[in-house]
Design a protein around this nucleic acid. Structure first.
Lengths: 158, 158
DNA sequence: TATTGTTATACTCTATAACTATA
DNA sequence: TATAGTTATAGAGTATAACAATA
């Protein structure tokens, strides 16, 4: 039997090797580091970046929908949206049909910030992965991860 | 152009779709939930489980090696190892060549706990993924993630 | 002087509970 | 009575800094 080994320390992975959870965590070390390096200047946390991205792609979306989409609690979403609005990256607008609801959209500044950061992130990922994954493998990986995410279990909406 | 959509809320993923970091985070929602459901009874946090797994697969490993392998700080590793030892799942033994170093190994109880939990986790993953990923796709995904993790950047040892 | 590991401390992220306003 | 969103509070997880012991 082949012994798979951890990055950096070269330890045997043992039983955990077969678990997607373990491999996802190890892989995230790479992408998290890339994000931190690229985004530190923007002062955008990971969740905030993702929220901005979803708001931009879905003008008029509500906080509740965002909470569901990202499996994050409504209070946390509220905090993040507050910060994004405070920096004028998004706008909130009360619904006319339902006074409880707010519709969100990105501002011009938010859209520009998002586009610039995303491009830098994509390039940094590309550069970092090029030694270990071909372009085709990378695309395949994105596709498989996207499929895996569809298995989002039963727990209410989150 | 095809519009990719988030799980659960069906929002457009927008620019973030192409980022591995985003897809990894979304996919982790699934596996994290599976871990929490299966491991809550064992009272083993994710890092602790992974540490136990690596210790078991690498008898005599040191704390420093573990910190490197998992990109976790030495103080955090020390805390986790303390908890694992407190529950008699691992043993620590001073090196005879170098008095600063400790060699770690799993106890019989630790090995059993690890094996049982890993099996439950693998089965739960299998059950959850079966609707969205074929067995071959799952294996391919593990392989690609493993490769991606090899891109672990320059930052010292972590 | 460098390295292994630990202790003490602090911070980031995220959650639960309680509340407001609208329906 | 239920839902969207917020405020207040608390906890989990992890890090940095300072330290002890050995090399």
């Amino acid at each position: 039997m082949i012994e798979f080994r951890t990055p950096k320390a070269g330890l045997a992975e043992g039983l955990a090797h077969v678990l997607l959870g373990y491999q996802l965590a190890q892989a995230s070390v790479v992408t998290d580091r890339i994000y931190d390096e690229q985004a530190v200047a923007d002062g955008l946390r990971r969740v905030e970046y993702t929220l901005l991205s979803l708001v931009h792609a879905n003008p008029g979306v509500t906080a509740r929908q965002l909470a569901q989409a990202l499996a994050v609690t409504p209070p946390h979403v509220a905090l993040c949206l507050e910060r994004l609005q405070g920096r004028a990256l998004i706008e909130r607008e009360r619904s006319e049909q339902d006074g409880r609801v707010q519709h969100l959209r990105s501002t011009e500044a938010g859209a520009q910030r998002l586009q610039a950061l995303t491009q830098r992130l994509a390039q940094a990922e590309q550069a970092a992965l090029q030694p270990v994954l071909s372009r085709a493998e990378r695309d395949l990986l994105v596709e498989l991860l996207h499929k895996l995410a569809q298995a989002r279990g039963p727990k209410p909406g989150r």
